Simulated scan of single mutants.
Amino acid sequence: MTAADPNRCRIVLIAPAGLSAERFGARLHQAVQGGDVASLMLPANGLDDASFQHFCEHVVPIAHEAGLAVIVEGDTRIAGRVGADGVHLETGVTEIANDIERLQARMMVGVGGAKTRDDALELGELRPDYIFFGRFGYDTRPEPHSRNLALGQWWAEMIEIPCIVMAGSDLDSVIQVAATGAEFVALSNAVFGDGIEPRDAIQRANALLDERAPRFEA
């Protein structure tokens, strides 16, 4: 992996649906050879608990060996069992508040699901470690969703809690996300889609960010 540039938007990878643990693990290993990746998010993607835990058990060591933080969606028990670094929650505010209080001392707790500024502010009041603007599996168009870009830009300008914004299926969309001021850009189909070489995709995404992403103030 290349050295990270902490002063610009960094990449978060999201595991897509439809790949076995072994197949995704191999593609993840290829991806991290392409350069800097900050972390990996593992959605359940419709798997039952046993299948999801098997998936995570196989993938987490690969990610950790590459220096990635791993965030597991939804199931705090599975996150603990597989040694994940964090959990991603999109449940009700009360449940998220309880989980943050219970878990945040030992792992990251991030949140998502906000569709409006009010939603985002309500979640922000709980002081999660990050907020995610986007939906798992919905990066099917080349460009990012306009609502996610708008929320990410507003959030980055107003709130200190880091945000992750979902990019589109075209690698060039990382520039649109970086322009919002978001700390992280999430990539899934743009890296792991059919016919894509993950290593080359990550290399190109980092080159685009190095060249065109705005730098954060020290």
Score class of each variant (00 low, 15 high):
residue 32 V to I: 14
residue 35 G to K: 00
residue 36 D to V: 09
residue 39 S to L: 10
residue 39 S to W: 04
residue 39 S to T: 06
residue 41 M to K: 13
residue 42 L to R: 10
residue 43 P to M: 14
residue 43 P to R: 14
residue 48 D to C: 10
residue 49 D to Y: 13
residue 50 A to D: 15
residue 50 A to I: 11
residue 53 Q to T: 09
residue 53 Q to S: 09
residue 54 H to G: 07
residue 54 H to F: 11
residue 55 F to E: 06
residue 57 E to C: 04
residue 58 H to I: 09
residue 61 P to T: 06
residue 64 H to Q: 15
residue 64 H to S: 13
residue 67 G to S: 08
residue 71 I to R: 05
residue 71 I to M: 12
residue 74 G to N: 10
residue 78 I to V: 14
residue 85 D to F: 08
residue 85 D to Q: 09
residue 86 G to P: 07
residue 88 H to A: 06
residue 90 E to M: 13
residue 90 E to T: 11
residue 94 T to Y: 08
residue 94 T to K: 11
residue 95 E to W: 12
residue 97 A to M: 11
residue 97 A to L: 09
residue 99 D to Q: 15
residue 100 I to S: 04
residue 100 I to P: 03
residue 102 R to T: 13
residue 102 R to V: 08
residue 103 L to A: 06
residue 104 Q to C: 10
residue 104 Q to F: 07
residue 105 A to Q: 14
residue 105 A to H: 15
residue 107 M to D: 00
residue 111 V to E: 00
residue 112 G to Q: 03
residue 113 G to F: 00
residue 116 T to F: 02
residue 116 T to E: 05
residue 118 D to W: 03
residue 119 D to V: 01
residue 120 A to T: 03
residue 121 L to G: 02
residue 122 E to M: 07
residue 124 G to C: 03
residue 126 L to Y: 02
residue 126 L to G: 01
residue 126 L to T: 01
residue 127 R to G: 02
residue 130 Y to S: 02
residue 131 I to S: 02
residue 131 I to C: 03
residue 132 F to L: 11
residue 133 F to I: 00
residue 134 G to S: 04
residue 134 G to Q: 02
residue 135 R to T: 06
residue 138 Y to I: 03
residue 138 Y to A: 10
residue 138 Y to W: 10
residue 140 T to R: 15
residue 141 R to V: 12
residue 141 R to Y: 14
residue 141 R to T: 14
residue 142 P to T: 08
residue 143 E to K: 13
residue 144 P to N: 10
residue 144 P to Q: 09
residue 144 P to I: 06
residue 146 S to P: 13
residue 146 S to G: 14
residue 146 S to Q: 15
